[in-house]
């Protein structure tokens, strides 16, 4: 039907080469073609953050990105978020602070939190609240999310 393109990229630390539909969204590539369902669909319009991934270290709503634009980039999804010691401290903190209820928003929330921690040296508590604005959660009151992130990056309220 539509044109295809070949892309070369790094996904969670492994090199990948794929031929894909030029119009395919990054989210659909991950979920439907690669069966990496950790990244969620909840709106498809860039309004909820459930599909957040890291592209060259920066957070992106994968539902708004063309998969073709993965070419030449370093992609990290929730499945690939790890530290040398095991799980990313952000993942541990979300668990320990009780920040996770149904959990559907949490892959996106955790990826965004990781982006905030990595890209803002002097993040404040208020700053992290603003930085998570694009990530909708319907279960929690967000407070435990803030506490988890603040704990990881070592800031007080």
């Amino acid at each position: 039907m539509s044109a295809t393109v070949e892309i070369n990229f790094t996904l969670n630390g492994r090199k990948r080469q794929l031929t894909i539909d030029a119009g395919l969204s990054a989210l659909n590539l991950l979920r439907d073609k690669l069966d990496m369902t950790g990244t969620k669909y909840a709106c498809g319009e860039g309004e909820c953050g459930a599909c957040t991934i890291l592209v060259d270290g920066l957070s992106v709503n994968s539902c708004l990105m063309y998969a073709a634009d993965f070419d030449g980039r370093d992609i990290v999804t929730i499945e690939g978020l790890r530290s040398d010691k095991g799980f990313d401290p952000m993942q541990d903190a979300f668990v320990e602070h009780g920040a996770i209820q149904c959990g559907f928003c949490m892959p996106g929330m955790i990826m965004q939190a990781r982006h905030l921690a990595d890209t803002n040296k002097d993040l404040t508590y208020d700053g992290l609240k603003r930085g998570l604005e694009g990530n909708v959660c319907r279960c929690t009151g967000y407070k435990k999310v803030f506490d988890a992130v603040a704990d990881v990056i070592g800031i007080a309220k």
Partner: peptide, 13 residues
């Protein structure tokens, strides 16, 4: 913590 929250935090659920 909820017993299922670890799986949810790593995208395995």
């Amino acid at each position: 913590p909820k017993p299922d929250s670890r799986d949810k935090a790593i995208g395995r659920t």
